[in-house]
């Protein structure tokens, strides 16, 4: 039974271009128990991870998706005619970090952290859907509030924002780095 379920899951993930969430899987397979699905999924992922296949199943933004293994990066890029993947600028990364750790956060608050204006980087991040506007702060001027998106998680290979080290862990990291 689990073997069959495993193969069903494989098909579902294969056909999904965007990460397939566990919620969606349950919707599609109402007759299977949650425990069965979890078990089958885990075994499927292990099979790919340990196997010699060129692809594996990665988690991104809380969903599952087939990806090529890192070893094949050069060849894939040649096929796609991409010399180098575009990277976020240091500025954009800073703003993104400030938002990720303080969300929801306003532009003046981001500026207060960084000490410089961040409007350009904010614009770029918004256009790339790495952040979104989540409302307005009940403060003078009612400034817009920003949050990170699921695409942010997927872009950095995270499943949840909690996977980033906590503020205290960061402090420790910094202290270790300095000593």
């Amino acid at each position: 039974m689990t073997e069959n379920l495993k193969s069903v899951l494989e098909a579902l993930i294969f056909i999904s271009v965007e990460p397939l969430t566990i919620e969606r899987i349950k919707e599609v397979l109402p007759e299977d128990s949650e425990a069965d699905i979890d078990e089958a999924l885990r075994r499927l992922i292990d099979d790919y991870a340990e196997g010699t296949q060129a692809i594996h199943i990665t988690r991104a933004a809380g969903g599952y998706v087939f990806s090529t293994k890192p070893a094949h990066d050069p060849h894939v890029r040649r096929l796609l005619q991409i010399e180098r993947r575009k990277k976020l600028s240091g500025q954009a990364l800073e703003v993104l970090s400030a938002i990720a750790y303080n969300q929801p956060v306003t532009q003046p608050e981001i500026a207060a952290i960084r000490g410089v204006d961040s409007s350009h980087a904010l614009h770029t991040l918004l256009e790339n859907n790495l952040i979104k506007i989540s409302g307005r702060k009940e403060a003078p001027g009612r400034p817009l509030l920003y949050r990170t998106t699921d695409k942010f998680l997927a872009y950095f290979g995270l499943n949840a924002i909690e996977e980033l080290p906590s503020a205290d862990e960061l402090k420790k990291l910094l202290e270790e780095g300095n000593s």
Binding site: A98, F156, L170
Partner: peptide
């Protein structure tokens, strides 16, 4: 708010990711 030095640490981390 998270202070700037820690933001810099996050930047390094995100860059690796």
């Amino acid at each position: 708010l998270l202070p700037y030095d820690r933001i810099k640490a996050v930047v390094e981390l995100l860059r690796d990711k």
